[in-house]
C-alpha cells in the first residue's frame, strides 16, 4: 500500500462537506435515497430533478443488487424490478453524471457489484460521474481496510478498498450501528473522510412507526470519536420523524418511504408528484424544527 494512496492531495468529498455545512433547511442536510433506474430510467432522471427542486441537499442512489441483505421488502422489490428492467452500475453512474452539476451524489452499492466491476475501475468511474462517496452496507471497516490478494480480483483489492477509493478521490462512508461497541465507534470515527452513516435501528431498511430509541445514545457515543457529520438512515419515513432526527444529527436519509411512495403512485407524473411532496414536507418540517 503506497503512502500517497492514503493521503490524497485534496480532502475528499468537498461538495458533500459543504452540503452538510450549509443545508437548505438549515438544521440538517436532507438526503433522499432512490434505487437507481427504478421504476425505469427515464422516471429516475425526472425523480432526481424533482428531489433537487424539492430541497434535497444530497441525493443517494442505490445500485440494484440481487441479494441485498441489509434491505427490507420495499428496497428489495425496487432492486429486483430495476434488475429485471436491465439496470446496471453503468446506468446508475449515468444518472449521477447527468445531474452532477445540480447536487452531490452518494452511491450505495453492495460489495459484489463493486468487485465484479473491478474495485479500481468502479471508484474511477464513480468519481468521473460526480459521485463523491460510497456506502457499502456489507463492507464493514475491517474488510474495507483488509488486504486481500489472489482469486482473480487481486489488483482491485490489494492494499484494501479504502486505499483504492481514496486514490481515486472517492470517500468510503463508514457505518455505525446501535450495536457498535465504543471501540468500533472509535474506528468508525477515525475512518470518516466525508460523513458517517448512522443506522437508526438494529435492523434492515424499511418504513417504521418510530425512530429507534437507540439512536440518541449512538449519536452521543459517536460524537466523542469524530467531528465528521453524522447522517442517519433506516426507517425514517415521515416529516415528523425527519424533524426529530434533524434535532440530533447532521443529515437525514429518507429511503424506503420515498421508494414506497414512488412505487404506489400512478405513472411517471404521479411518482414525481409523490416524491416531491414527501421531500418538500420533510424539508419544511426540518426547517420548522
Amino acid at each position: 500500500m503506497s503512502g500517497d494512496a492514503r493521503t490524497p492531495a485534496a480532502p475528499l468529498a468537498p461538495r458533500l462537506r459543504r452540503a452538510f455545512e450549509r443545508p437548505r433547511a438549515k438544521r440538517a442536510a436532507l438526503i433522499p435515497y432512490l434505487t437507481g433506474g427504478h421504476p425505469d430510467v427515464e422516471t429516475s432522471h425526472r425523480l432526481i430533478a424533482t428531489l433537487v427542486d424539492a430541497g434535497a441537499d444530497v441525493v443517494e442512489l442505490g445500485v440494484p443488487f440481487s441479494d441485498p441483505i441489509a434491505d427490507g421488502p420495499v428496497v428489495q422489490r425496487s432492486a429486483h424490478e430495476a434488475l429485471r428492467a436491465g439496470v446496471t452500475p453503468e446506468t446508475v453512474f449515468e444518472l449521477a453524471a447527468a445531474h452532477r452539476d445540480r447536487v452531490p451524489f452518494v452511491l450505495l452499492t453492495y460489495v459484489n457489484s463493486l468487485l465484479a466491476y473491478g474495485g479500481a475501475r468502479f471508484f474511477a468511474r464513480a468519481a468521473e460521474a460526480g459521485v463523491e462517496a460510497l456506502v457499502i452496507p456489507d463492507l464493514p471497516l475491517d474488510e474495507a481496510a483488509a488486504t486481500v490478494t489472489g482469486a482473480g480480483v487481486e489488483a482491485e483489492t490489494a492494499g484494501g478498498l479504502v486505499a483504492l477509493a481514496s486514490a481515486a478521490g472517492v470517500s468510503l462512508v463508514p457505518m455505525a450501528a446501535p450495536t457498535s461497541t465504543d471501540a468500533r465507534l472509535a474506528m468508525v470515527g477515525a475512518a470518516a473522510t466525508s460523513f458517517v452513516y448512522c443506522v437508526a435501528v438494529t435492523g434492515v431498511t424499511g418504513p417504521r412507526q418510530e425512530v429507534g430509541e437507540a439512536l440518541p445514545g449512538l449519536l452521543e457515543r459517536l460524537r466523542r470519536h469524530t467531528a465528521a457529520p453524522l447522517a442517519v438512515g433506516f426507517g425514517i419515513s415521515t416529516p415528523r420523524q425527519a424533524a426529530h432526527v434533524a434535532g440530533l444529527a447532521d443529515g437525514v436519509i429518507i429511503g424506503s418511504a420515498l421508494i414506497d411512495a414512488v412505487a404506489r403512485a400512478a405513472g411517471r407524473e404521479g411518482a414525481c408528484a409523490a416524491a416531491g411532496d414527501l421531500v418538500r414536507r420533510a424539508g419544511a418540517a426540518i426547517a420548522a424544527g
Binding site: V111, D138, L139, E143, P174, A176, P178, T179, S180, V199
Partner: peptide, 9 residues
C-alpha cells in the same frame, strides 16, 4: 466477514 456493521459485534 462481509456483513452489515450491526452484526460485527
Amino acid at each position: 466477514r462481509y456483513v452489515p456493521e450491526t452484526l460485527i459485534p
